[in-house]
Design a binder for these strands. Structure first.
Lengths: 138, 138
DNA sequence: TTAATTGCAAAACTTTTGCAACGCT
DNA sequence: AGCGTTGCAAAAGTTTTGCAATTAA
């Protein structure tokens, strides 16, 4: 499937989806963002949210984080950064750990693949969950 | 949801699912593995494959890799290692880049989270795809 | 025997898509 | 006007679940 360059128009819907996502410090799934956006645009449809998230991702304005079975999470900060995912509450947090860009080169040389970038997710218990009971489950 | 310790029995189905997954060098999705397993167990059902993959994952015998919209990929090698994902053909490859365990400690200290482990996925074009045309799409 | 496991089918979810109407440019 | 975008609803795809029958221990 070849990606054609299409002239994009501005739409109120797309702008508000992007604005609301950027406002959130969390990394919501499409359905959660849909509910947020619907407060401002009561008639917006699910399809529009999905279409625009895909579009914004393709244009590099939004990150689509690696997905779980319950859907992908989206990040309004487009520059690559690492994430922490809580095994208990499931929330995803930004980390300010520097991205190890030189790893890409190392892996390229070693594996023969052409590496563009990497994503790293740390797993464990967030500050709130680690202080509560630690019986491990999701 | 508290995870109960349940006495597990050996079932022919679970054993074959595990065996076939370990045999594969690729990292199949559940539906692909289902087709493979069905060659040996023509009557096995989708539900059984999913139930057992979840179970094997919970018991740490199998890795459930971060998922895409088309489903999770599974890895029969249970010890943590890095992966390379081809942006063109979508295949996932194992890397033998060493896992940077000390990163976990660094992130723990810096962020206040209790880090157990991390996962890293490299993205780019695999050896085969990078030599073909490089028009970037999935 | 007894309780985990299976096969089947239906349900639950997430995401995509066809289409007529709408709205940027 | 031209065509990208929307809302709606239906479709598609993945994963889970309820249940009676089966099977491992």
């Amino acid at each position: 499937m070849i990606k054609e360059k299409i002239l994009r128009r501005k739409s109120r819907q797309r702008q508000i989806i992007l604005d609301e996502l950027k406002k959130l410090k969390t990394h919501p799934r499409a359905d959660f963002l849909f509910k947020i956006v619907r407060k401002k645009l009561p008639n917006i449809s699910f399809g529009t949210v999905y279409r625009n998230l895909n579009l914004l991702r393709d244009q590099g304005e939004v990150l689509e984080l690696t997905c779980g079975k319950h859907g992908c999470r989206y990040d309004g900060t487009a520059t690559n950064h690492y994430h922490f995912s809580c095994l208990k509450c499931g929330r995803v947090f930004d980390l300010d750990q520097p991205v190890l860009r030189d790893l890409d080169m190392k892996v390229s040389n070693k594996s023969g693949m052409a590496v563009n970038y990497h994503r790293t997710d740390f797993y464990g218990y967030c500050r709130e969950c680690k202080s509560r009971n630690m019986s491990a489950d999701k």
